[in-house]
Design a binder for these strands. Structure first.
Ligand SMILES: [Mn+2]
Ligand SMILES: [Mn+2]
Ligand SMILES: [Zn+2]
Ligand SMILES: [Zn+2]
Lengths: 140, 140
DNA sequence: TCCTTCTTTAGACATAGTCTAAGCTAGGAT
DNA sequence: ATCCTAGCTTAGACTATGTCTAAAGAAGGA
């Protein structure tokens, strides 16, 4: 897996100290952080880092196509550094736990031509929902 | 199509004049309105209707399972009265146009057991993205 | 060094949604 | 019919998330 900073550099995008800290914070963990969670953690390494820079940087990384923006609930957006590996998400309706998953088929292939309304369909993402093991146990 | 008010009544849910106007506004159109779009239109029939009641009522209809809450972008939630017909959504990345679509298979079946992380997976929704005919024309 | 461009920053602003406290309504009990 | 209670509605304050602005701060080429 070519790391995020390397991928970003290919876009002739200046890797400032702030941008490096943000990218490394984003990639360092395997969860899907919100902007404020990234700020919270990045600030431990760079105390003067501002909220505006975190938002600006995340938006730029999304525009470059190197980070995915997930809007799975109506709360904060979440950022996913794993943009170079096609995958979907499985979310627990009890506690919000989120897992990356891989489906056996490309959902675009399962959309018949007469359901496309003339669109040029380029991609599809699946959101699976259910209960995680702990929330199942808590419920019964 | 058993209408939304009828479905709501089955839950022993009081159909007040406000709730009726909101439900009928939601169902009357085939687009997916935001809360404020519903307020805007419902107020034409009931000028004293408040924003809080629109939000309260939509949340209750979602909790009853009779309306779907869609969070497809990071902006406002959208509400879909068509909760009794399984379907997915196709969105134009140019203009935001949204269409209901029906896939040929249930995506839950495409998720292998070893990708379920012990979850009890209950449902899945697909978001298709692409360009609508008009945005394709505008681009070329 | 000087100049230009890009980046960062604090804080103001915008928007979407929730909460609160008070008043209102509907319907059952008397 | 009147009273009572539970639930509903309301305006507006409040919260959370994200964007914008204007000024100051790098960076790098001439
Ligand atoms: Mn992911
Ligand atoms: Mn729909
Ligand atoms: Zn859970
Ligand atoms: Zn379009």
């Amino acid at each position: 897996m070519s790391d995020l900073v390397t991928r970003l550099r290919r876009h002739n995008w200046r890797i400032t100290p702030q941008r490096r800290v943000i990218a490394e914070t984003l990639e360092g963990s395997h969860v899907h952080f919100t902007a404020d969670e990234i700020l919270e953690r990045a600030v431990e390494r760079m105390p003067e880092l501002s909220r505006a820079t975190v938002y600006n940087t995340l938006n730029e990384m999304v525009a470059l196509g190197e980070v995915l923006e997930l809007t799975l609930d109506g709360r904060s957006k979440r950022y996913d550094p794993n943009a170079d590996h096609e995958h979907h998400h499985l979310i627990c309706e009890g506690c919000g736990l989120m897992k990356d998953v891989h489906a056996m088929a490309d959902p675009v292939d399962w959309l018949p031509g007469d359901e496309r309304h003339g669109f040029a369909v380029t991609r599809a993402s699946i959101t699976y929902r259910g209960l995680c093991p702990e929330c199942q146990a808590a419920q019964s």
